[in-house]
Amino acid sequence: MSDKMKKLTVTRYNPETDSAPRTQTYEVPYDDDTVVLDALNHIKDQQDGTLTYRWSCRMGVCGSCGMNVNGVPKLTCATFLRDFEGDITVEPLANFPIMRDLVVNMSDFMEKLKRVKPWLIPKEEKSIDEGEYLQTPRQLEAYRQFSMCINCMLCYAACPVYGKHQDFLGPAAIALGHRYNEDSRDGARAERNKIIGSGEGVWECTFVGECSEVCPKHVDPAAAIQREKLANVLDKIKSFILPRGSSR
């Protein structure tokens, strides 16, 4: 590392001693390759072992190290210090309860994820001995983008609807439901729609669109949600016109 130094103002919260979060400023050396996570690791290793945050893969795929950097939800392993003029503020992801320092409690999402049934429910069961379900590259392309979600929670931190209404299923969960709905092998859209099409589902979304802006994997959850809205309405119209046998 070079001699260049950067000031990081980091949120600290220790539930055992603090009643509310406070901030602490550290100074770290950096060069062109230094990411925010490296800076935090430097602090933890050399200056203050009590600084608490999550991280793992350091290559933008495990989804652990999401934080608000200068107010914007970011994967800190892919956010370079060189891109910031002046000091940097590092806060825990917005809209989540803070467990400690930069660690947020995401059990709400884990609960919600399960509710959208994010697993394949085949149109017709096929035994493994019969081989794979056929799926053309084009059919794969129909849902591929929505299968790229790494559950990093940046979209939840960017979503004002979730900020205000914690019952909202939220961008990532709905996008994953959409991913299975769009999978040519799957046949359980109606079942998932019970939750995705409910009051806590797509209808709470006002399409602010920031979820898609901050998504590091270009999943575009906003698109998933709007498409689920449209599909839900079209289904209703269909079942209104053809009351029976209109599963899809």
């Binding site: 096929k126 493994i128 081989g131 794979e132 379900y133 053309t136």
Partner: peptide, 22 residues
């Protein structure tokens, strides 16, 4: 092979050939 196909049956988005096979 059985295990890889099992994963396919669980929805893993394996890349495909034009004919739809993995």
């Amino acid at each position: 092979p059985r295990e890889l196909l099992q994963l396919e049956h669980w929805g893993c988005p394996w890349s495909r050939d034009p004919d739809g096979r993995v």
